[in-house]
Each structure stands twice: as C-alpha cells, then as structure tokens.
Write a protein that binds this DNA or RNA. Structure first.
Length: 108
DNA sequence: CTAATGACGTCCG
DNA sequence: TCGGACGCCATTA
C-alpha cells in the first residue's frame, strides 16, 4: 500500500488526458500540499515505471520539460508532440492552451 | 529521533 | 529578463 499523499498524487497523474499537461505544483496542490512539488518529483522517480503513469505529461511551472538527462528529455518531447502538444522554439509549452484543469478543486 | 532525497517554486539582486 | 540562493516537505534509510 502506498501512503495516502502518494496515492492521491498517483491518482491525479493517471487522470491527465492525452494532449494535456499538468505542472508539479498543480498536482501537489490538488493532492493536498500546495508546496509539495518535490514529493511529486520523488514519486515520478520511484513509481513512474511501475504504475503506468503518463509521466511525460508532467512539466514544471514554466511549461518546460523538467528532466535534464538528454535521452529521456527527447523521448518526453516526442511523446507529447505525438499527442498533439506543440512545444515552442524555446522548449516551452503554452500552458494556457494545454494545462489540464480538473473539475475537483484543491482541498488545501 | 536525524539525514538524505528530489524531473520544483519563488523571491531577489 | 535571468540566474542563483533558498524554502519546502512526504517519504525512506
């Protein structure tokens, strides 16, 4: 069993639809800790492969791909473009257009 | 109990 | 506008 907070983060990430993205801070807030972005990072590191998580739909607050490692960074970019998410010349995604807004409000 | 981790966010010069 | 310092915090060791 996963810890409660971890479980909520996982559930939220799994609900991000194709062609949309969410930021770390946004996910953390919906899970109950608006400043828990770093937990989301840890979760992606430890559970992305085991839980069928669409990790590529998670980007930082600026709309950039957060990962530094080149291989995975390009992979993520391709995955997003394949879903119709256009990434600008500076590596920026237009959050106004692609950010996923769940109907459920943040509980904290 | 403390220390470390981490693909972040925000403030300030 | 940009980069660096610092804050943050659930979870694990």
């Amino acid at each position: 069993m996963l810890q409660p907070y971890t479980q909520r983060v996982v559930d939220i990430i799994k609900k991000i639809p194709e062609g949309k993205v969410m930021t770390y801070g946004q996910i953390a807030g919906l899970a109950g800790s608006s400043r828990g972005a770093r937990q989301v990072v840890r979760i992606l590191h430890s559970l992305s492969s085991a839980h069928q998580l669409p990790w590529h739909r998670v980007v930082n607050a600026k709309g950039e791909i957060a990962i530094q490692e080149d291989e995975s960074r390009m992979l993520q970019r391709h995955m997003l473009e394949a879903e119709g998410v256009y990434i600008g010349i500076n590596g920026m995604i237009d959050l106004e257009e692609y950010r996923h807004e769940p109907d459920i409000p943040p509980d904290r």
